[in-house]
Amino acid sequence: MSFQDDLSRDEFYQAAIQPDFPDCMQFVLTAAAQPSGEGDLTFSEEGIENLTDQIKHFIMARILGTWRKQNLAPKELSVGLVLDFKAPDEEMLRKGAWPWWALVDKGAHPLDGGHRGTP
């Protein structure tokens, strides 16, 4: 399950505020599907802000959840951060949405028509 894909912000908060909610959470940011000026793929500023916002909500919810569980205000918080970058294989990236194969019927006759990439 993921925040904003499967859960709304309120649902996420409701779940994260529970004392038994895990302390470890992975947030994933994927680059916007538009070429930048240089033609390279990059993360958008809005996406990064959204990601840090999600992390902030998660930390806030964990503080409240822990407070409720222990019935004492926590006085120290440490956050470990591991960044992991992934890039698709360039060849696969290049050979994306262009299915270069003919569509045939059961008798293997090529069919008239085209393939349109996802709009």
């Binding site: 599907a33 698709p88 990236l93 994306g96 949405a97 069919l111 028509g113 990439g117 996802t118």
Partner: peptide, 29 residues
């Protein structure tokens, strides 16, 4: 006007990897 008979199966974006396609009812676009 094109007769579209297949599409990418899921949203992949222009930099995505499209390996799955699906046939669609022929539509003129």
């Amino acid at each position: 006007e094109h007769l579209i008979i297949s599409r990418d199966k899921s949203e992949v974006g222009v930099f995505g990897i499209s390996t799955k396609v699906e046939d669609v009812a022929p539509t003129i676009e």
